[in-house]
């Protein structure tokens, strides 16, 4: 367990955390501002991954693939907003959960009809397939560095957008007190549509970037939705800053659980028991983190509505 090993795991956790942030940011904005539980957010992530994988395969240009994936997903999301989600804003959470869960089922079947049941193999762009010598003794995959860079860039952009622009001000106003914002003359409908599209774009970006290091398959959206929900609960619903901190925490805890727990268990338990216990404990690490945070701060780390 030397310093390089720990550093490499920190980088892995950072990369995973930043991708979680991209998904959780959209989810927390939609929930915080519109008070709407959008379970279908994971389906937008899946759409981004599938479109990117296909376009990358056909055009051999990764940048184009990411761009097309984001545009297509935003178009799909806009359609979804007009047809379904817009009618859910004033309904209670149960109706929203049922309706958006229905969208998940339809989306999964639509993907099955378009691309088939077999998972797609998304390839890493050839230029980034190799390692980069970060420090002596640690070659790190170039593609993962791209993920970290892109994640940090988007986080910074989002921070500037929310804290420095007029649109961001409206978004913050909506998140902290929607009714008051409406009384002050904010045209909520437009802000809602913008936030929904922004969330979709972030989810699609995450999907497109994650495609080469994850399985592009039906159900990938549901699998990522659960950690994303954990992130927004820990961070405080509606708070971008909270989502950022919580995503990095969850990313680090999850990676640390997988990296450090099994060797530690093997040191004290027989290998077969450790083999059963290690992955199980690593899998619940993030939920333990959530329980601990909620015990100390029931509204999350950075509640948007203080």
């Amino acid at each position: 367990m030397d310093a390089i090993f720990v550093f490499e795991q920190l980088l892995n956790g950072l990369g995973y955390g930043l991708m979680l942030f991209l998904i959780a940011a959209g989810l927390t904005l939609v929930f915080g501002i519109m008070d709407t539980m959008n379970l279908a957010h994971g389906s937008l992530y899946m759409a981004g991954a599938y479109v990117a994988a296909r376009v990358h395969e056909a055009s051999a240009s990764f940048a184009l693939a990411v761009l097309v994936a984001v545009l297509v997903t935003v178009a799909v999301a806009a359609l979804l907003e007009v047809l379904v989600v817009r009618h859910l804003y004033r309904r209670d959470h149960l109706v929203q959960v049922l309706a958006t869960f229905g969208i998940i089922l339809i989306a999964d079947d639509a993907v099955k009809a378009i691309w088939g049941v077999a998972p797609l193999m998304a390839s890493t762009p050839a230029a980034l397939a190799g390692p980069v010598q970060l420090i002596d003794g640690l070659p790190y995959p170039a593609y993962r560095l791209l993920l970290i860079g892109a994640g940090l860039l988007v986080a910074l952009g989002l921070y500037l957008l929310v804290s420095r622009t007029r649109v961001g001000m409206l978004v913050r106003a909506g998140a902290s007190n929607r009714q008051m914002a409406e009384y002050m003359g904010v045209r909520v409908g437009g802000v809602f549509a913008f936030v929904f599209a922004l969330g979709a774009a972030l989810a699609a970006l995450a999907g497109a970037l994650m495609a080469p290091i994850s399985a592009v398959q039906i159900g990938m959206g549901e699998a990522i939705l659960i950690p994303a929900l954990v992130v927004i609960v820990i961070g405080g619903i509606g708070s971008i800053r909270g989502a950022f901190v919580a995503a990095l925490l969850v990313g680090l805890v999850d990676t640390a659980g997988r990296a450090f727990l099994p060797p530690a268990l093997r040191a004290v338990l027989p290998p077969s028991v450790a083999a059963d216990l290690g992955p199980a404990l690593a899998g619940i690490a993030m939920y333990v983190l959530m329980a601990a945070v909620l015990t100390l701060k029931p509204a999350g780390l950075f509640p948007a509505r203080a």
Partner: peptide, 13 residues
């Protein structure tokens, strides 16, 4: 499992 970053770091170590 699809992402083996944590395991690859273990092998490197």
């Amino acid at each position: 499992q699809i992402d083996y970053a944590a395991e690859i770091a273990q092998i490197r170590a």
